[in-house]
Amino acid sequence: MSHSNNIKTAGHSLENAKKALIMIHGRGGNATDILSMSAYLNVGDYALLAPQADNYTWYPNSFMAPEQSNEPWLSSALEVIENTLQLALDKGLQAENIYFFGFSQGACLTLEFLARNARRYGGAVAIIGGLIGEQIDPGKYMGNFEQTPIFIGTSDPDFHVPLERVNASVNILEGQHADVKLAVYPNFGHSINQEEITIANKFVFH
């Protein structure tokens, strides 16, 4: 199975915007849900792009399952993000003016895509996510973020995403010269809090 390129849009058109935000929804969510988060972010003048996963999930198993068990969905999901990014680039936006926001499964997918394709982006926000695979394979991750700001927020504990994996992911990203800010909230639960929104706006969408 592969995902269709079903990209929902909001905000300004790519032709008229100077910046774009790619938003990746979580398991069971949808593009419209994640686009609604933009109302809380300082992205009023951005073009907003949110691809929709077929069957509302990007890959079937845990992000820490053996990678092969999530194929071919995982590779297709990463290709969808690549296509969404390329859509913005083809309209003349520079990578340093393209931003990312992902939640849960969407945060894992966002971080995985960025680490595999590191360059100077505008910035990224990943709420409750980490790099994908049974073990992290540093050999998959290439490129230089050139101090791209990446904010990661998470709960400890989180049923789906262990803090140990989040910390290991931060180490990889920092090794690729990302400017990573991590915020850990004890027993907060699997959701997004107001402080994370505030940090995202100050650190990434300023």
Rank of each mutant, 00 (worst) to 15 (best):
T84S: 03
I81C: 01
E146V: 08
E96F: 00
H177E: 12
G139I: 05
R119D: 14
L89I: 06
A178D: 05
I132D: 07
K91C: 05
L74Q: 04
S155Q: 10
D90N: 10
R27G: 12
H12S: 11
D137M: 11
S4A: 05
P51H: 11
L163S: 13
L21V: 06
G133E: 11
H160D: 14
K202V: 08
P72N: 04
S104R: 00
G26E: 05
A183S: 14
K19L: 04
A178W: 02
N70G: 02
T110C: 04
Y56G: 01
A39P: 03
F203Q: 11
N6E: 08
W58R: 06
P72C: 02
T32G: 12
A178Y: 02
S2V: 03
G106Y: 00
A10E: 10
N187F: 13
L114T: 07
P72E: 06
H25S: 11
M37C: 13
L41N: 10
H12Q: 14
G130D: 14
A10K: 09
N61V: 00
G44A: 13
G92Y: 03
D54A: 11
F63Y: 11
L74N: 05
D158P: 07
M142L: 13
D90P: 01
L114P: 03
G153S: 12
Y99C: 00
N171V: 07
F159Y: 11
N171C: 09
D90T: 06
E96G: 00
S13R: 11
N61Q: 09
S36R: 14
D156L: 12
G92S: 02
I132Y: 14
P138E: 15
Q86F: 05
P66R: 04
A47R: 13
G189K: 08
Q135N: 15
T154Q: 14
N201M: 08
C108I: 02
F159A: 15
V180N: 04
G26R: 08
N171I: 06
I199W: 04
L109G: 02
M37E: 15
